[in-house]
Design a protein around this nucleic acid. Sequence first.
DNA 1: CCAATTACGAGAGCAGTGCTCTTGCTTTTG
DNA 2: CAAAAGCAAGAGCACTGCTCTCGTAATTGG
Lengths: 240, 240
Amino acid sequence: MSAIRGARERARIEVTAAIKDEARKQLAAEGAAKLSLRAVARELGMVSSALYRYFPSRDELLTALIIDAYDSVGETAERAHRTAAAENAAPARPGTHLARWVAVACAVRDWALAHPHEYALIYGSPVPGYTAPQATIGPASRVGLVFIAIAEDAHREEGIGLPPLTAELRPEAERIAADLAPGLPPAVAAPLVAAWSQLFGLLSFEIFGQFNRVVEAREAFFRQAVTELARTVGLLDRRG
Amino acid sequence: MSAIRGARERARIEVTAAIKDEARKQLAAEGAAKLSLRAVARELGMVSSALYRYFPSRDELLTALIIDAYDSVGETAERAHRTAAAENAAPARPGTHLARWVAVACAVRDWALAHPHEYALIYGSPVPGYTAPQATIGPASRVGLVFIAIAEDAHREEGIGLPPLTAELRPEAERIAADLAPGLPPAVAAPLVAAWSQLFGLLSFEIFGQFNRVVEAREAFFRQAVTELARTVGLLDRRG
DNA sequence: CCAATTACGAGAGCAGTGCTCTTGCTTTTG
DNA sequence: CAAAAGCAAGAGCACTGCTCTCGTAATTGG
């Protein structure tokens, strides 16, 4: 789209990247609350006011890191989906889609364990008085889209066995399906959104320490829970 | 245990409470990150250094607020449980325990919606470099204990229909059951812990704005999801 | 009942923060 | 080649958590 025009623009891109890298380093080391513009500038050998040429405020820097984090976990999920799809490409074998579901969930979990502070940044408490800017909603939905894709594939190739919706929830489920998964029947779309949020409940409790002294065999526990979650959206296991 | 001995001790208790109240007010208004010791002191007409006679650091003040928040939501859950138990005291009617489960979950949700910053304090990202002190783990488990109690009642009075554990998860499930719910079979205890964390996944996504532009009919959606969650721990609905 | 101890409030001060503004210098542009 | 725009640096403001000292008040032991 836009080629680099001169030394100035090239330098700007590099400095911007260096700031984000250093900020990410501090984020990983100490958490978002202790990320300091002055410390970033200090580490980069510049004075703090110079940094404002690149990010108009601390919040804007954080927003950039949030977008990067969403993209990072989103790309992880997409890669896991591709890999799992390549490994068992046989279309009609039952359990295929459930296996992909679990693989993607585990990949997201691995990412979260490897980047706890970035996870906290996007799935923990929103930062003070902060409302997510428009630019974040695209990257933020990438993980969800992967699960939607799996459910759509499963529905198309294997069919999905799910009880009909209650009358109370039908209009909402139809709206959800129309808005973000037109290829999915409403009876699948609603449980899918619920499962999506519940997956991050499992992750948050593990990452944020709520499972301390409660759950020990974390991975086995997670795989089991996530498999059960897949059943609530109608994915069929190997027993059909 | 300890009676108030003099004017000094009485004053200390009152000032401590006043500090916590003002801090809670600021927490509700601006969130934990913007809670400032100096602002609290200012509002109370004292100088900031005087506040350190009552709380040795900002983190200690936050810890006190965390404990209060856990107690607040815990008491809410317990009260909802008592009320629901009183309303349908018939022991053997199917659906009784599921109704209690949903009632408690909705009460917790109402509390979270009414106290979003306190919710964020205890179920959001842990504050910077902060590890939960011993004093929090008691209050922190009150909500969970309510759900355990419901499951135990259901298991004792109605029985619970759940598939057997996978071999992989059996030892972990047995440990969990032995540690925190000795009255419950392991096949129930493990899904119960999963359901507990998934419940807070639903809540966090709603409170933290992840459902914006996704879920509109929040309460209906929540009730449905939480009912489904109850089924995963074996609670039977009215249809038996 | 009085002296010693202890708890407390106030103030000054330190190191750190986000952010603004001005001042020169360099690169880019018309 | 001159004007305009981009940039780094420094000083400075208002704020933060926290420490230390110093007088005063309440509490306690003899």
